[in-house]
């Protein structure tokens, strides 16, 4: 393999935006603090300098306005990418996202399309004070018309962002804040599976851990720890929450016969419950035990001093794996 520089996930997102803007003049990037500052997470660093204030620009401080304007821009030939500064600060835009972005194609029988990318830095584990750590994916995945992706690796950050921008439909990109500074040596030109595809991150034979976004590295860590104890755990990275890759996820579960879903969002009526339902419906006769979940509690995201109690941990995952009825084997 050719030598490549190590880059961070934030840099991979940045490169994806840069390349998309270079490739297509209709791609616009806008939001709060995305210009001179380069975004509070520096994901848009240097874009205004390179492409000018007409292509990457700060708006007045209003999320509903940002997404609403994106709708109009998309109606008139543009391909807007918008940044919601933090998960919980996207809520003022909820009406625009749910009532217009998601439904426009359907309402107009395809006459109007919404090639809009909504970037949402999401989830916790960063010691953030309230409203800075929400896992808001359930709101989006429950809204028909939205595509929703949650990359967990540096390479996927690039690929899924490029695909999101190229998509003819609106895509919510959940950017795991906690992983922004994670580094990897990647060849960005190397093709990764696209939107709609899950990936097996680690092979294993005893049980399957299913995770996405911030939970993928923890699942991998748990698999390492389990291996040390002589148990072989497979790890599936869902990547694309909508569309969901039933085929890859279910094939993985069938191969081991046991599964634990890991996600930091509250578990009730969540992406994790959807995954359990789908896997159970499709793999029931292959399962040696009920599919378990390790999720956040059904509580508002806790303050920094308490978040470690809320988030899925290696121990919690291993405890869940232990309950998968091994004695019956």
């Amino acid at each position: 393999m050719a030598e490549h520089e190590k880059i961070t996930m934030a840099q991979a997102f940045n490169q994806a935006l840069r390349d998309a803007m270079a490739a297509d003049e209709s791609v616009l990037m806008f939001g709060e603090d995305v210009g001179a500052l380069g975004g509070v997470f520096r994901v848009t660093d240097g874009l205004t300098a390179e492409f000018g204030d007409a292509r990457c620009f700060d708006t007045p401080l209003a999320e509903s306005g940002i997404v609403g304007m994106a709708v109009g821009l998309a109606m008139n030939g543009m391909r807007p990418v918008v940044e919601m500064q933090f998960d919980a600060f996207a809520y003022p835009a909820f009406e625009q996202i749910v009532s217009h972005v998601a439904k426009m194609r359907n309402r107009t029988r395809g006459a109007l399309t919404m090639p809009i990318t909504i970037r949402v830095p999401y989830a916790g584990g960063i010691g953030g004070v309230e409203h800075h750590c929400d896992s808001s994916e359930a709101y989006y995945v429950h809204t028909p018309g939205l595509t929703v992706v949650a990359p967990a690796t540096v390479a996927d950050a690039y690929t899924l962002m490029r695909e999101a921008i190229a998509s003819p439909d609106p895509v919510v990109v959940l950017e795991p804040k906690k992983l922004y500074w994670s580094k990897d040596e990647v060849d960005l030109d190397e093709a990764q599976p696209g939107i709609g595809r899950a990936v097996v991150r680690r092979e294993g034979t005893d049980a399957t851990l299913i995770a996405y976004g911030t939970s993928v590295p923890i699942a991998l860590e748990a698999a390492d720890a389990a291996a040390a104890e002589g148990r072989s755990l497979q790890v599936v990275d869902v990547r694309s929450l909508v569309p969901f890759d039933d085929e890859t996820v279910c094939a993985a579960v069938r191969s081991t016969g046991r599964a634990v879903v890991v996600a930091e969002a509250p578990g009730f009526a969540s992406v994790s419950s959807e995954i359990v339902a789908r896997v159970t419906e499709r793999c029931f006769h292959h399962l040696a035990a009920p599919v378990r979940r390790v999720t956040g509690f059904d509580i508002p995201y806790p303050p920094p001093k308490l978040e470690h109690l809320h988030l899925p941990s290696v121990d919690r995952i291993l405890d869940a794996v232990d309950t998968l009825q091994w004695d019956d084997v």
């Binding site: 709060e32 603090d33 210009g35 001179a36 500052l37 509070v40 700060d58 708006t59 007045p60 401080l61």
Partner: peptide
Amino acid sequence: AISVPLAR
């Protein structure tokens, strides 16, 4: 507003 001047 963080980095954004009043004029915006």
